[in-house]
Amino acid sequence: MENIVGYRIKSARKLKGLSLQNVADELGVSKQMVSKYENGVSIPPSSKLLSLSKLFDQKVDYFFRSFKIELGEVNFRKKSSFSAKKENSLKEQIKIKLENYLWIESVLGIDSSFNNIISNKTINSILDIEAVVLSLRNSWSIGVDPIYNIIQLLEDKEIKIIEIYDADDKFDGLATYIDNKYPVIVVNGNFPVERKRFTLLHELGHLLLQIPRCELAEEEKFCHRFASEFLLPRKMLINEFGGKRKHISFTELVSIQKKYGISIPAIIYRLVELGVLPKEYHKQFYKKINFNPSLKKTIYHSRFQTPEKSFRFKQLVYRALAQEDISMSKASSLLNKSIESIKENYALI
């Protein structure tokens, strides 16, 4: 029991980005005593656990949860300025959310095993991405049609989606495996919907693609191409825009943005990438919008109409509650909501 409590205290401390001394000052004990708590040498009395609960903004039962997971490799590759303390905080936040997710699935007897159906697809160059994406879309029975809700699609395919709302724009997203078995994608929930969709699919590329050994920058290009191809397949782009063009109208771009849920800059990039627009068009486009703030604001306006929210975990908690597999108090703890709030949203039909 002491090891579990210590593990939870250390995890919650990292989540909050606090030092041992910070916690010691709040509890009115020495830094050495907090270290003993974390290492399982000593267990805090109930009064200190209550203080820790308030400090870490966690329910008291959090400190006694025995269900633990191991994250796979987590690479915060997006922004070099992302601090180590913030990385550790996000890792702990992700672990807590995923532990709750997998625990509720185990309570409900749900087998969320995942099969990467393109694991046998060899990729020798970035040009191979198109065929791989088409194979995946066909296997998932979505052809080349626009996708209304990326999160729902991925969750239906047993990929865990975690949205983080207290991260700034230095964090885009990440992908990893839990216990070398369960795939998970974490995304910044504050993003405009088009950016969120692209990030989700970019991270899906990191999860599924068998990319040849290369530099990180090159790997990012593979995943960027994967996301672009998945959102707006070559066939549909050619159908929508025709052959080679010298110019594109704003009305055309807005129409495609609304239909496929991909940002206008990403559409421009895709058009240049596939040779519909000349190579110099991309630079001209950014030069034009960077010198015109009003146009830039209009270009980056979000227009795709979809919730792109993850509701599955919440749904599973209420399912377990309705089946009397968990108590109202446990549901409150899992969702980090008050019991009154849970009662308001809970009604048996």
Rank of each mutant, 00 (worst) to 15 (best):
I129E: 10
I178N: 01
I118N: 00
I118D: 00
K160Q: 05
E158Y: 03
I142P: 14
N120S: 06
N116F: 03
V187T: 05
D145S: 15
I161A: 08
I142K: 15
Y177C: 02
D128P: 01
R137F: 15
N115A: 07
S125N: 06
E163M: 12
D128C: 00
N124T: 08
D145M: 15
I151W: 07
L153Y: 13
I123M: 04
I164R: 12
V132P: 00
N120L: 02
I118Y: 00
K121G: 02
I126K: 05
I147D: 04
E105W: 07
D179K: 04
Q152A: 13
P146K: 14
I147S: 04
F171P: 01
L174W: 03
S139K: 09
N180G: 11
V133L: 09
N149F: 10
K157H: 09
L136N: 02
V133G: 11
D145Q: 15
I117D: 07
Q152W: 12
N138P: 05
Y182V: 00
V107P: 01
F171Q: 04
I161K: 05
N116W: 02
L134H: 11
K181A: 06
K160G: 04
S125E: 08
S119N: 06
L108V: 10
D169R: 12
D128W: 02
E130R: 12
D169Q: 13
Q152D: 13
Y182F: 05
D128S: 02
I150D: 04
I161N: 03
D156M: 07
G173T: 07
I147Y: 06
P183N: 06
S112R: 11
T122K: 14
L153M: 15
I150G: 00
I162W: 14
G173W: 08
F171T: 04
A131K: 11
N138E: 14
L127D: 13
N188T: 06
I104R: 06
N116C: 02
I117E: 10
I126W: 00
V133W: 10
E155Q: 14
S112P: 07
S135H: 12
I123Y: 06
I147P: 01
N138R: 13
S113K: 06
N116T: 03
Q152M: 11
W140D: 02
V107M: 01
D172V: 01
S113M: 03
N115G: 05
A175C: 09
W140E: 03
S141G: 14
S141E: 15
G109N: 12
I185T: 08
D166Q: 14
K160I: 07
E130D: 13
V144D: 15
N180C: 10
